[in-house]
C-alpha cells in the first residue's frame, strides 16, 4: 500500500473539505429545507456553522485574545507533565527497587489507578483555588500513573546480565541506580511520552472547564454559558490543533532521546 505523497495529502485534504462542506450544508438555514428540526436555524444552534467558527478562530488570533488563554493552558500542561513525570519516576524507581514497599503499597496503587481521577477536579479546585495549580494537580494525577507504571516495568525488566556486568565492573548501589536503572527507566518514560503529555493536556483542559478564570477550557466554558456554540467549536478546534502540535513536538524530542534504540527498519546484525 504505497501512495504518492502528494496524492495522499490531496486525498486527506479532500476528506477535510468534504467534512466541512457537509457541516456547512447541513447547518446553513438558507441552503436546505429543515428535515429534522422544525426551525431552519435549529441545526446551526446545535452544531454551529463552520464559517462562523473559523471566523471566531481567526478573530482570536488577529486580536491576540487567544494567546493569553493558550499560554495558560500550555503552562498547566507543561507543569502537570513535569511534576507528574518526576513524581512517577521517583516513586517508580523506589517501589521497583524496594520489594517490601511495593508489596505493601500495591493494593493502594491499583486502587488509585482504577479510580476515575477526573472526579478529583472539584476537590483540587477547593484545595488549590481556580488558578493554575488545581489544573496542574489534575494533570499530575493523570500523568503520574502512566509514568509510574512504565518506570516500574522498566526497572523490573533491566536485563540481569547488564546488572551483573555493571557490578563486575565495580558499580555500587548508587552507580547502579544512576547508570543502569535510571537510563533504563527513562527509556520507558520516553516510550510513554505521547500518552503522558496527552493526559497532562486533558488534565489542564478538563480542570479549566470545571472552573477557572483563564485558559482555552475557560473560553469554552464561558461560550457554553451563553449558548454560543460557534465559540465552543472554535475552542475545540484550537485545542485539537494544539494537541496535534504538542504530539509532533514530543515525537521530535523522542527521536532525539531514543537514538540508542534499534528501529524496526534497521536490519539487526547476528
Amino acid at each position: 500500500m504505497r501512495m504518492d505523497p502528494w496524492r495522499l495529502t490531496g486525498l486527506r485534504l479532500l476528506v477535510l473539505v468534504v467534512a466541512i462542506g457537509i457541516w456547512h450544508v447541513l447547518t446553513d438555514p438558507d441552503l436546505i429545507p429543515p428535515f429534522y428540526f422544525s426551525d431552519p436555524a435549529r441545526a446551526a444552534f446545535f452544531f454551529g456553522r463552520p464559517f462562523k467558527v473559523f471566523g471566531t478562530i481567526i478573530d482570536w488570533f488577529v486580536t491576540g485574545e487567544i494567546f493569553g488563554h493558550l499560554a495558560i493552558t500550555l503552562l498547566e500542561t507543561a507543569l502537570g507533565f513535569v511534576v507528574g513525570a518526576v513524581l512517577g519516576l521517583g516513586v517508580g524507581l523506589w517501589l521497583a527497587l524496594s520489594p517490601t514497599a511495593s508489596a505493601i503499597l500495591d493494593p493502594y496503587i491499583k486502587g488509585f489507578n482504577s479510580m476515575p481521577r477526573v472526579v478529583l477536579a472539584p476537590i483540587f479546585a477547593v484545595w488549590f483555588g481556580l488558578g493554575v495549580w488545581s489544573k496542574v494537580a489534575l494533570g499530575v494525577t493523570l500523568v503520574f500513573f502512566v509514568v509510574f507504571f512504565n518506570v516500574y516495568q522498566g526497572v523490573r525488566e533491566v536485563s540481569p546480565n547488564i546488572i551483573a556486568s555493571a557490578r563486575m565492573l565495580g558499580a555500587g548501589p548508587r552507580q547502579l541506580l544512576r547508570s543502569i536503572y535510571l537510563p533504563s527507566a527513562m527509556s520507558w518514560v520516553f516510550a510513554s511520552l505521547h500518552n503522558a503529555v496527552g493526559l497532562a493536556f486533558v488534565g489542564a483542559v478538563v480542570g479549566e472547564y470545571l472552573g477557572s478564570a483563564r485558559g482555552v477550557g475557560y473560553l469554552i466554558l464561558q461560550a457554553e454559558g451563553t449558548f454560543d456554540i460557534n465559540t465552543v467549536f472554535a475552542g475545540i478546534l484550537v485545542l485539537t490543533a494544539f494537541a496535534l502540535l504538542l504530539d509532533m513536538a514530543v515525537g521530535v524530542v523522542e527521536r532525539r532521546l531514543l537514538l540508542w534504540q534499534p528501529k524496526m527498519s534497521e536490519t539487526e546484525p547476528t
Partner: peptide, 19 residues
C-alpha cells in the same frame, strides 16, 4: 563481587543506551 575478576558474559551485557 570478586573485585579482582573481570567477567565476559555469554549473552550481550553491554549497556544499549551508551555509545
Amino acid at each position: 563481587v570478586n573485585r579482582r575478576a573481570g567477567y565476559m558474559f555469554q549473552a550481550d551485557a553491554l549497556m544499549p543506551w551508551r555509545r
